[in-house]
Nucleic acid binder design. Sequence first.
DNA 1: CGCGGCTTTGATGTTCATCAAGTAAAGTGG
DNA 2: CCACTTTACTTGATGAACATCAAAGCCGCG
Lengths: 226, 226
Amino acid sequence: MYCSCESCHINNTFFTLIQEAGVDKFCHSRSEIKIPSGKTFINQGDEIKSFKYLKDGLIKLHRLDINGKDQIIFFGRPLDYISIQNTFSEKTYNYSVTAIENSTVCIFDINVMKDLIQTNGKFAIKMLEISSMALNRIIDNSLELISKTMYGKVASLLLFFSEKVYLKDSFDLPVSRKEIAQYTGLSIETVIRVISEFRKDGIIKVFGKRIEIVNKPGLISLNEHN
Amino acid sequence: MYCSCESCHINNTFFTLIQEAGVDKFCHSRSEIKIPSGKTFINQGDEIKSFKYLKDGLIKLHRLDINGKDQIIFFGRPLDYISIQNTFSEKTYNYSVTAIENSTVCIFDINVMKDLIQTNGKFAIKMLEISSMALNRIIDNSLELISKTMYGKVASLLLFFSEKVYLKDSFDLPVSRKEIAQYTGLSIETVIRVISEFRKDGIIKVFGKRIEIVNKPGLISLNEHN
DNA sequence: CGCGGCTTTGATGTTCATCAAGTAAAGTGG
DNA sequence: CCACTTTACTTGATGAACATCAAAGCCGCG
């Protein structure tokens, strides 16, 4: 199996910290899979056997709540460490992961990973940094969603896709109205009405899945003050 | 400075993983402070110079949002690692920490801590476990607060104090109605009305700060289905 | 073609925030 | 110690934010 790590844009994070012998072992335990959009590749309850990160694409982490309703925890972009949440504290996943765009996932043997953390101090610190950042992001999301109105919640997610995922003002929304509802905690109808209001107010243009942000300052203002 | 680590109930977590030479260095960098209830001992924006954990007492992590409103992130119990969130990813705290009961905080030099992580593999894994658990807890809280009605939110917090903090059905509420509002995202008046309804419905008894859970199954049911 | 899922809109009712006003409790200065 | 201010708590009235129910159009798919 050829190790194509050099071509991976996550090089900086991982491989600058691993020296000769380590790289061999690490690369040998590595594999890569393509996940088509819509496919759930980790199921809530699955045993954790590997450490995964998203090389390319877009995913959602989601979970069934006590009443059987599916809730979206967050959307993962490239460089997000899909497994970080409980790779080190649980034996099974307590959430599912589904691709919402065609994605590429890198997979490492969990024991090789743990071994590396134990023997490479800098690598261990790096992993803690990554874990801390994930925690910060969840906290930000959580406080944001609890304090905002429906306008702020939807504005926030549109800005996330525009500024953090596609880096454009015009993009195809990778999620359904239902998924926006599952993420924001709003009802589907409310999400539709908000999007519709944004459209009527000239904040955005909508053509099915296609979103074009026309008045970005307006959207940012809605995000910050609603 | 005498190292009284043996008497600390967190021994298991930390010191079983550190061998001779390490303990000396670690203990030498350790200190302990008493924090009176109500005192803010970490301010949003402060430089992170040490690693702290709560030995005894009760604290709240909180943050000012963009509009100047104080939001409570979570309540920390003994053994919670106050600093975990961003000790390893940020230079300054992005939240404040305030004691809501008389508390004892253990303080370690951050560099000694990082050194220990780099040189002691098992310790590094342990820290990652702790970080993962913190992340899981925040995710649980977040999903809970976004999907519940006012009844479920307040019920959930009452049960937290009863089952996770005081281990009794009768206890003095360590937070004001305002703080419950800041944590749940509800208005103060709504919090009061919910507590008042619980009282009228015979779920709890209220004498000022004193709460007595009378109908626990009822409260649990409210927590799960509202 | 017809079925199921996604989307949209309207009508209606519930959940919740805001405003106003008042009481209790707790600190502050004389 | 008492008057004084401030802060916490409480209740009611009102309106805004949001969910739910119902109905209909759209679209992909077997």
